[in-house]
């Protein structure tokens, strides 16, 4: 589904990703772990199409297409979802209006009929129920005045509505209390299907207690330096990132 080959990316002249390789297939859950500043968020930005980056070399293909040539909104319509680390506040724009616009744009792209107001509200209710989100986020402006936990729940809620093929969750677990974490994890698990994939970017192992990854990759200094199964996460948790640094030095 997603193939990243030898990708190098710089931000404001500084090389952040240095020849990164990653392959994500349908039905898989990948966890990308790494210390601060290792390039995790930059990776999320490349996949979603943020514009402050310079691609130095390498290629990214998604569903057989060169992803780097596709504008961000088309990527979204084609099924890529980014759960933002810091969801931006958009004052005055209600979530309902925002998501209805997003969904109908996607449906237009897929040549489906747009949802009516009533249909959309029904869909929202359904998704809210499934995710067990009780708070009335939907009447409020997008992320405005939300607590950290509410923002992250809202990201998962949007993900549920958009039903992406490839979801990238950038530090979605950071700053969450245990209840919010469960809501987020529950959401990810519920939305897991044979034909979609999830990439969880995280600093801590905590989320991976609830979202069991098929693969764990350690991102360090712009490269994936170690890959393994879910046990790698536990090992990391136990030994810390220094262990990776040490083992890198040895080799």
């Amino acid at each position: 589904m997603l193939t990243i080959k030898n990708l190098s990316v710089s931000v404001e002249g500084k090389l952040i990703l240095k020849g990164l390789n990653l392959e994500v297939k349908e039905g898989e859950v990948h966890a990308i772990m790494g210390p601060n500043g290792s390039g995790k968020s930059t990776l999320a930005s490349v996949i979603s199409g943020r514009n402050y980056l310079t691609i130095e070399q390498g290629e990214v293909t998604y569903m057989g297409k060169n992803l780097l040539e596709i504008p961000p909104e088309v990527r979204s319509k084609e099924g890529i979802f980014l759960g933002f680390q810091y969801p931006v506040e958009i004052p005055g724009v209600s979530i309902t209006n925002f998501m209805r616009t997003a969904i109908n744009e996607k449906r237009k792209h897929l040549e489906l009929k747009p949802l009516s107001g009533a249909e959309f509200l029904k869909l929202m209710e359904e998704k809210q129920k499934i995710l067990k989100i009780q708070s009335k986020l939907t009447n409020r402006s997008v992320n405005e005045g939300f607590s950290g936990g509410e923002k992250k729940k809202n990201e998962i809620f949007q993900m549920a509505l958009l039903e992406p093929k490839l979801a990238i969750l950038d530090e979605t677990d950071s700053g969450l209390d245990i209840d919010a974490l469960k809501v987020v994890a529950n959401g990810v698990n519920l939305l897991r299907r044979k034909d979609n994939a999830t990439v969880v970017i995280t600093h801590y192992q905590r989320l991976l207690d609830y979202v069991i990854p098929d693969f764990v990759h350690v991102l360090f200094d712009g490269m994936i330096v170690k890959s393994g199964g879910k046990e790698l996460a536990l090992e990391l948790e136990e030994k810390g990132y220094n262990w990776i640094k040490e083992s890198l030095k040895k080799t």
């Binding site: 504008p71 961000p72 979204s76 616009t101 996607k106 949007q158 958009l162």
Partner: peptide, 13 residues
């Protein structure tokens, strides 16, 4: 720019 990108990421042109 952040707000614009957020919308773009959700598929809104």
């Amino acid at each position: 720019e952040d707000q614009l990108f957020y919308c773009l990421q959700r598929g809104i042109d």
